[in-house]
Amino acid sequence: MRTTLTLLLIVVGFGLQVVSYFFLAAPWGIPSSPAYSNPRVPFAPTIFILGVVLVFLAAVVYELLPERGQ
């Protein structure tokens, strides 16, 4: 149970990082106006950090949840 949750957290965490960085934050394509510097979604860096936090929380979760069979 805890392994699944841990792995889930890691995958989701990295997923969030990838999505928020490449698709929500970094500008792609040809700039049409100065505003292209702004992230697509206002809190994109927060989502990235959230992803990082989730990855690290995975370790905590692994620690806190009881082992199978205990």
Binding site: A25, P34, A35, Y36, P42, F43, T46, I49
Partner: peptide
């Protein structure tokens, strides 16, 4: 900057780029 690193990393969107540059 038009491709401002500071704007990209602001977690709360306090640093932003206006249309006039």
């Amino acid at each position: 900057c038009d491709n401002a690193p500071c704007v990209k990393v602001c977690p709360v969107g306090a640093r932003y780029k206006r249309l006039d540059g």
